[in-house]
Design a protein around this nucleic acid. Structure first.
Length: 401
DNA sequence: TCTGGGGTCCTAGGACCC
DNA sequence: TCTGGGGTCCTAGGACCC
């Protein structure tokens, strides 16, 4: 959208920390750049072919995603935002020709936002994911695929390896292969009960869905998270405890912030610390901690996370990553207090509210616990970050006369 | 030098209850 | 000779998604 000069050129996007390649344009794929390759391993190849490289920029993607979703919502009252770049729309009962709607959706998004999309329409979620794949892969489809007849479904499924089916990945594909199930069509025609016995109920549902029998509902209410994690690799590996304590304090604060956003309390946390799995002598330890009482207070969660890290830490290892998970959550509204235990005081609540409000108004991390430290040795590597064109005053593009 | 950061659901097995 | 039948909850690990 903001770099039309790159249209038709090879472009790749890197994971957090510029770790590896998570997204490629068609042109980059054609150059033989593999998916999920470690960046440093293909850097020369990228340079040789003059591939444009971008670090992940979630504020930008999140904002553009929200625009797309808002536009999509005008096409159906029932929608599920499935991920940052996918949405399911319930078209049940809509009388217009489905192919017309598909093209309308696609054209509207292009003209309003300049985001190209693929549209797949089918009786179930699994089939619509298949249709979406076809919409993008088959040039003649022109970005829209409607799987409205058994014949079309069969044609597509016979050409689709089973591993491309939504919900089937490497391990399941291996097991299915052993049962002589190689394509989506084979799976659709397999006996659901027998397959279930060798795999799980998930695969049984997929089989039903492939046959046009809905098993997966549209989840229009996103619902509160059941677990909240904050984990990061460090920019620089470290053998010292102090920078790790600072880092885990930051992660704990981030996680607590998310926790308060959904009005939950946490009772149990999970803290881990590890070295590089690619280096010899891999060290990976984790600890689960029961908090003294359910809380959403950053200070308490931070304290507990720090003690956990201190307990896990052993000198002599080169650590690359740590993280915290809030794993047992309670709805604040329905929290049953313990007669014998101190609950979180009202003062804590107000304090956290003030902290959140300041950070919302004046920018993330404006006010924080000293435990995080003043330097940021854990910062992310992002050498090729694009501007935040739509969410940062200084990055807004200028139009010159 | 260098390999992400989130999540969900399911299952098996253990431990326990009456 | 012979040892039931029906449950729950918890946890670790596996598998998948983006």
């Amino acid at each position: 959208m903001f770099r039309p000069d790159l249209r038709g050129k090879p472009v790749v996007v890197l994971s957090n920390n510029d770790g590896f390649i998570v997204s490629r344009t068609r042109e980059a794929k054609a150059l033989g750049i593999p998916d999920l390759a470690a960046y440093f391993q293909v850097e020369d190849l990228l340079r040789k072919h003059d591939v444009a490289v971008f670090s992940s920029n979630y504020p930008l993607y999140g904002d553009l995603s929200a625009r797309v979703m808002t536009t999509l919502k005008s096409f159906s009252p029932n929608v599920e935002v499935y991920s940052i770049d996918e949405m399911f729309l319930d078209l049940d009962g809509i009388r217009t020709d489905l192919s017309t709607i598909g093209h309308d959706i696609k054209d509207t998004l292009w003209s309003h936002i300049r985001i190209p999309v693929g549209v797949g329409i089918a009786p179930t979620k699994v089939l619509s994911k298949l249709a979406n794949r076809a919409a993008k892969a088959i040039p003649k489809a022109n970005g829209v695929c409607v799987l409205d007849s058994p014949f079309k479904q069969q044609w597509l499924m016979q050409r689709m390896p089973v591993i491309k089916v939504w919900g089937i990945a490497k391990r399941l594909a291996i097991r299915l292969e052993a049962m002589n199930i190689k394509t989506a069509w084979d799976l659709a025609n397999a006996n659901p009960k027998i397959v279930r016995r060798c795999t799980s109920v998930c695969v049984e549902r997929i089989i039903q869905e492939l046959n046009g029998i809905p098993c997966l509902e549209l989840e229009d209410e996103p619902g509160a998270k059941k677990q909240i994690y904050c984990t990061r690799s460090f920019e620089h590996k470290t053998t010292d405890l102090q920078p790790i304590l600072n880092a885990i304090s930051l992660y704990a604060a981030r996680a607590a912030e998310k926790l308060r956003q959904q009005s939950h309390l946490v009772r149990t946390i999970h803290v881990f610390l590890h070295t590089s799995p690619f280096a010899p002598g891999y060290f990976d330890k984790a600890i689960t901690v029961q908090l003294p009482y359910p809380t959403d207070d950053t200070r308490i969660i931070t304290q507990q996370a720090k003690s956990a890290i201190a307990a896990l830490y052993q000198p002599g290892h080169l650590f690359v990553k740590a993280g915290i998970g809030l794993i047992e959550l309670l709805d604040k509204k329905f929290h049953q207090h313990d007669f014998w235990q101190q609950p979180q005081s009202a003062g804590n609540n107000s304090l956290m509210q003030v902290v959140d409000r300041i950070n919302q108004r004046h920018g993330k991390g404006k006010i924080f616990l000293a435990a995080q430290g003043m330097s940021t040795p854990w910062a992310m590597r992002q050498c090729h970050r694009s501007p935040e064109y739509t969410t940062k005053w200084t990055d807004i593009p200028c139009v010159s006369a």
